[in-house]
Write a protein that binds this DNA or RNA. Structure first.
Length: 358
DNA sequence: AACTCGGGGGA
DNA sequence: TCCCCAGAGTT
């Protein structure tokens, strides 16, 4: 565990803080922020999310909900609508849970110890360390994708970072490196350094202030580290969405199953595990079960692919005009005005305009 | 320990 | 296409 010489560790910390003080850090609205609520909000939004992508959402949320109590008291539907497009929607649900906990049980006062922060729903080791160090100057080292990459390269760690052992070793090393009285600066610096210099692809080693003692650089392992042991397996799914209109209303439902897009809304869905034609779908028993009234077929879209991390969705939209309201209660009729308040997955929101000509 | 949860951007 | 992004919760 302590196989790295303290000399190299001192070098790393000194060079990193120096690099940071030379105004190389990234400029972001939550930098130097001391309000734990704002730090928490930004950290949740940035989980597995690029800073540039999360930025507009953060600004929008802070304006709409200046305090944790404002967020706790907001209608859930409105919060999900504002989160629409950011992905990983369980974050939004957990965000609301924690906002209500703090607002109701702590009178809106954010917890100020590492253990309490870590116990919040949606707050794991990374986020707890980030809030503790940035808001309260507590000595906890953050470990995110940047930190794992930077440390595995500089110290030449060859244990895969997607294993328990690998994560444990990096976390231990990061905590050991952390200068106790400069935890916020160190944590921000190492992430900015990873994002701008020690990048995943084409890192800027020629400009790197620690090149001299970087094991990956000296042993030509920069393109190899960090190691990962697992390969991603993608599942293919075929979604047939039925845009069913009756008297200026369209049928939707909220996704509640243990699956993607929980708490988002969707049109009537018939899913297939293999490629299928729209004709087959329209004549299937499943179709007759949900489209239980006479209808007129208006349009069948071309298939549209959406890439997710673990699956590829091929979506086809089938537009029909109902001659009577559906008898099933699996889907609810929604007016155009109401539709605009609902949150949808991207494959629906990006096609909503032409589907129901808003 | 393995799986699953989105959407976007870069190579 | 594939990989990665200021990770966390569930199984």
């Amino acid at each position: 565990m302590d196989s790295f010489s303290s000399k190299w560790q001192a070098f790393f910390v000194k060079k990193l803080l120096n690099w940071n003080h030379s105004s190389n850090f990234r400029s972001m609205p939550w930098k130097f922020e001391k309000d734990p609520y704002k730090i928490w909000l930004s950290e949740i939004m940035l989980q597995q999310t690029r800073v540039e992508q999360g930025l507009t959402y953060y600004l929008k949320f802070i304006e709409a909900f200046p305090t944790v109590t404002d967020l706790a008291n907001a209608p859930e539907k409105k919060v999900f609508k504002m989160w629409e497009g950011l992905g990983y929607y369980s974050r939004c649900k957990n965000l609301l849970t924690t906002a209500k906990t703090i607002s109701n049980e702590s009178n809106g006062v954010f917890p100020n110890t590492h253990a309490e922060i870590l116990s919040l729903t949606g707050v794991g080791p990374y986020t707890a360390a980030a809030i503790a160090s940035f808001a309260f100057d507590l000595p906890y080292a953050v470990v995110d994708g940047n930190v794992m990459r930077v440390l595995s390269r500089f110290f030449g760690i060859e244990i895969p970072i997607d294993t328990t052992q690998g994560k444990k070793q990096i976390a231990h090393l990061a905590q050991e490196l952390l200068p106790t009285h400069q935890s916020a600066s160190f944590n921000q610096a190492i992430m900015d350094f990873g994002a701008t210099i020690c990048k995943p692809k084409n890192p800027i080693c020629l400009d790197c202030v620690m090149q001299k003692n970087c094991i990956a650089y000296n042993q030509q392992l920069v393109d190899v580290l960090p190691l990962k042991s697992k390969k991603l397996i993608k599942k293919q799914r075929w979604f047939f969405y039925i845009t069913a209109k009756y008297k200026n209303q369209y049928y939707f439902r909220n996704r509640t199953a243990k699956d993607i897009w929980q708490n988002l809304h969707e049109f009537i869905l018939i899913e297939k595990s293999s490629r299928s034609s729209a004709d087959t779908i329209i004549n299937s028993a499943e179709w007759k079960k949900v489209i239980d009234v006479p209808f007129e077929l208006l349009e069948v879209s071309n298939p549209i692919n959406q890439q997710l991390t673990h699956q590829t969705i091929t979506g086809t939209f089938i537009t029909i005009q109902l001659k009577a309201p559906l008898q099933t209660n699996m889907y609810a009729p929604i007016t155009k005005k109401q539709i605009q308040q609902l949150a949808f997955p991207k494959i629906i929101s990006s096609n909503l305009n032409w589907l129901i000509n808003l």
